[in-house]
Design a binder for these strands. Structure first.
Length: 416
DNA sequence: TGTCCACTGGAAGGGAGGGCTT
DNA sequence: AAGCCCTCCCTTCCAGTGGACA
């Protein structure tokens, strides 16, 4: 009997139950283990809204994967259920990493109050003041309590200052009918330092901190999800414990733990295993780390790719510690060879900082006394992997087979 | 002790590219 | 079409600096 090429893959799909999204971070389960206290606390604040009053503004702090977003979204669902008969509560969720400008935030919120058949606020074009007025007007057209959630609020402040928060936090003074309360979610405790003191106090009427999960708590979370996502007997308890332990080492990140388990499952499935074993957890750990780096590099703008490529060539050429001057001159060389326009050194220092923040390189400022002050730069990703990804870029591809002066004394020919 | 290197990183602003209004 | 607005990417200009060396 002829077998289709997919046959193997189709029949091997036996590890997961039908819905593997259960292991993805976007999935909000029916109950959230070990977050009862936080749920109660936030619920008691938000309950005010059900009575038609304005709940206090809240700032929620906690590292990634501690359940902040999950709890807030979970309560959003609950509050909608309870308020359906009245229909007076708007629960608006906004991720400030995606929408990170003052205009963007105002326009986004505004559009939630504008029905589909009406004209929306365009994503650019209007004066900000006009967007703000529109938002106010639409919001105020009806008695309602609006709860606005600004996830990753620190990104917003970092990128575009605190003007938006100033506007939003004093919007209640301008509204006659509607009431607004803001829930800010942040990874960083200290982001409030950058805020104007008035905004800081208005925004932080209530504060909550989500502690990291410990290994035991992570295990409970994983158990709960694994039961839903995997077929019976596919995942050993020891595998769950391992995922929990690994994630606990990384500041108790539940997202990471779930990802480990999911990827381990997927890898095992691909190899036609009938069980997920600990080996696959370690494999998953590796894969996740590499995929993450690869994705970051892949989406870099061309200029940064050239810059990074230059650093790699230098390191291959035997230099481990680079400084800004070296990197800049190699970069200029690469630009010349590829016909890409050369950016100024000032701009390049910014790009270097960016690469540093992304964790691709490590750059720190040092002083070499008589010989000036500069950054000392080392790569912090495996060279082979990074090169493989960079080679996907057509512009980088051109460089292979060419002689490149990476330092005053050294010619170098990139090799695959 | 002062000098002076090779930068760092802030400030200001240009201009392209998105869009709106009149 | 002209005249706005907002954001992003970039340039120009420049004061500031840690510490090896004379």
């Amino acid at each position: 009997m002829e077998e289709s090429v997919f046959q193997n893959y189709l029949k091997s799909d036996t590890l997961f139950k039908k819905n593997r999204d259960i292991l993805r971070p976007s999935y909000i389960p029916e109950n959230l283990p070990h977050r009862d206290y936080q749920i109660d606390q936030l619920a008691s604040i938000l309950a005010t809204a059900l009575r038609g009053d304005r709940p206090s503004n809240v700032l929620v702090f906690g590292k990634t994967g501690t359940g902040k977003t999950a709890v807030v979204k979970f309560l959003g669902k609950e509050i909608k259920k309870s308020s359906d008969e009245m229909g007076t509560i708007d629960y608006i969720y906004l991720n400030c990493e995606v929408v990170d400008t003052q205009y963007g935030v105002l326009a986004n919120i505004g559009n939630r109050f504008i029905s589909d058949w009406e004209e929306q606020i365009p994503f650019t074009g209007w004066p900000t003041e006009k967007v703000y007025n529109m938002l106010k007007e639409k919001m105020d057209s009806k008695m309602r309590v609006a709860v606005i959630i600004l996830d990753e609020i620190d990104k917003l402040v970092y990128k575009s200052g605190d003007d938006v928060l100033y506007h939003l936090s004093k919007i209640n003074d301008d509204l006659t009918q509607a009431k607004v309360s803001i829930i800010g979610i942040s990874n960083e405790l200290k982001f409030t330092e950058f805020l104007d003191p008035r905004i800081k106090s208005r925004l932080g009427e209530e504060k909550m901190v989500f502690p990291p999960y410990n290994a035991e708590q992570l295990r409970d979370i994983l158990m709960q999800r694994a039961e839903l996502a995997f077929r019976e007997g596919v995942v050993e308890p020891s595998v769950i414990s391992l995922c929990a332990a690994l994630a606990a080492q990384e500041h108790g990140d539940a997202r990471r733990a779930l990802e480990l388990l999911r990827v381990a499952g997927e890898l095992a499935e691909r190899n036609h295993e009938d069980k997920v074993t600990e080996t696959y957890v370690y494999k998953a750990k590796n894969k996740i780390e590499l995929d993450c780096v690869a994705e970051v590099i892949r989406t870099l703008p061309t200029q940064s790719k050239l810059l990074l490529f230059g650093m790699i060539l230098n390191e291959e050429g035997g230099r481990e510690k680079l400084n800004t001057g070296d990197v800049f001159s190699t970069y200029k060389e690469l630009c010349k060879k590829t016909g890409v326009s050369v950016l100024t050194q000032r701009r390049i220092t910014d790009l270097i900082s960016e690469l540093d923040m992304l964790g691709i390189i490590h750059a720190r400022v040092i002083s070499k006394g008589r010989y000036g002050r500069t950054r000392e730069i080392t790569l912090s990703v495996p060279i082979m992997e990074a090169k493989k990804v960079l080679e996907e870029d057509d512009i980088i591809k051109e460089l292979y087979g060419q002689k490149i002066k990476i330092q005053a004394t050294l010619d170098y020919m990139p090799r695959t």
